[in-house]
Amino acid sequence: MAHDEELIRDLEKKANIVRRNIFTIFDASQMGHAGGTMSLVELVTTLYFHHLKIDPQNCDWPERDRVVLSKAHCCEAIYAVLVELGVLPEETLSTYYCYRSPLQGHADRWCTPGIDYSGGSLGQGLSFAAGMALAEKLKVLRQPPSEGIVKFMPRYISRYNPLYRSYCILGDGECHEGQVWEAAMFSAKYKLDNLITIVDYNKFSLDGPTNEVMQIEPFVDKWKAFGWWVAEINGHNLREIADVLDLTSNLYGDGKPKCIIAHTVKGYGVPSWEQAHTHIARGEEITRGVIEGRAKYGHI
């Protein structure tokens, strides 16, 4: 499923726009989850601008793919995408964190169009995404009203495309939460092959290196042991991301939930944030990072 150069070049341009929008958000808010937002840029760009089945004109389309940003504190990356998609007006970028803004501190399904999941408490998103994947499996085929009979699709495994897929973006530190593994067991039990989890493995949580704070390795083996199909990619390589996402779609029908472990760099693209493994940036740190980032990516 080789993707042509043109697609990758287009995605590069989109990633650059997403970064520009993120810098606008941070510039105005003077505070934000800089590290974990920057590590997501290529992942969410490829997801939204290449892979997902969505309609920016109709965010509530019942057949849209669902996205659960379980690490909801990095919603800046999604807001940046939603602006480029035209779901949100560009002016909203400078209103993040503000009272009356649709852009909440943590993503909220009632405040922001295009958001499927209200998060903020880590560890719950994968369960929620699994619930949405499960609902897709339960899609009801209604007979003509005259017969008045309701029939169900054959359970769990279908060779046909799903009505929609459910995507969950997890943080690596978030995988310290036990509920992630409860959801992993559940998804394997109910053969949720329409559920795709992307772990933004940026190697750092708030208190330090993720694996020193609490070891999650051997990470791939864990997911495999829980019955998942697993792939490891470079989470900043657009081609690898596009390839693996499309592969997960082709594997539909195998009865396995999919986990993409994306190796990323916290603060990616902004030297001072990369160096400091910045989690939340404020004041001087955010101003400096935005200047560095804008210079690097040629945003004026």
């Binding site: 719950q124 929620f128 619930g131 949405m132 609902a135 169900f152 409860e182 959801a183 559940f186 109910y190």
Partner: peptide, 28 residues
């Protein structure tokens, strides 16, 4: 049975799964 889900001894997961089902139009 096709609409019943035993989550095992994992109440936290059960509640968030129920929320995901509800967000997709089911009445869990």
């Amino acid at each position: 049975p096709e609409r019943s889900f035993d989550c095992g001894i994992a109440e936290q997961n059960m509640v968030s799964i129920a929320a995901g089902l509800a967000a997709s139009g089911k009445i869990p």
